[in-house]
């Protein structure tokens, strides 16, 4: 008898925990803030993609992009490319912050950045460069 009650108790507890888990199953990313940043990044990607392909720009471990091979960019364009990189990193920082805020957990920003850092690299195209765990540039 007691056993049955304990089982019920655990079931209730488990349901409750499941409810919690379900609440966490999705991160809220459908916010005007995320949409605005995402749109801006999507527009910029047209300019960044050839730079990823040429190896001039690579993906860093911390969820940013960086100038990897300056020699692949003519001097006259270097400022523009640096500007592009700076703007992209600013957007990425804003994106990570905005997702954390939209989910009412501003302290998740660092974890979200780490998650993204890994996923950008995992999903990068063959031939693009990324920083491996040791920080060295590696061609995918």
């Amino acid at each position: 008898m007691k056993n049955w009650i304990m089982k019920t108790l655990w079931l209730i507890a488990a349901l409750f925990a499941a409810g919690q888990a379900f609440a966490q199953a999705n991160l809220e990313i459908n916010t005007p803030g995320v949409a605005a940043i995402q749109g801006s990044m999507q527009k910029r990607h047209g300019e960044l993609a050839p730079l990823y392909a040429s190896g001039a720009v690579g993906l860093t471990r911390d969820g940013n992009v960086a100038l990897r091979d300056p020699a692949a960019v003519p001097l006259a364009q270097r400022a523009a490319v640096n500007g592009l990189i700076a703007a992209e990193n600013q957007d990425r920082a804003a994106l990570y912050r905005e997702i954390a805020r939209a989910n009412s957990h501003p302290e998740w920003e660092g974890d979200i950045r780490n998650t993204f850092g890994q996923r950008w690299i995992d999903r990068a195209q063959a031939g693009w460069y990324y920083q491996n765990a040791a920080g060295a540039w590696t061609r995918k």
């Binding site: 001097l75 006259a76 270097r78 400022a79 640096n82 500007g83």
Partner: peptide
Amino acid sequence: GEVFWQPLY
């Protein structure tokens, strides 16, 4: 010639 001295070109 040309010089790039971040951020000047």
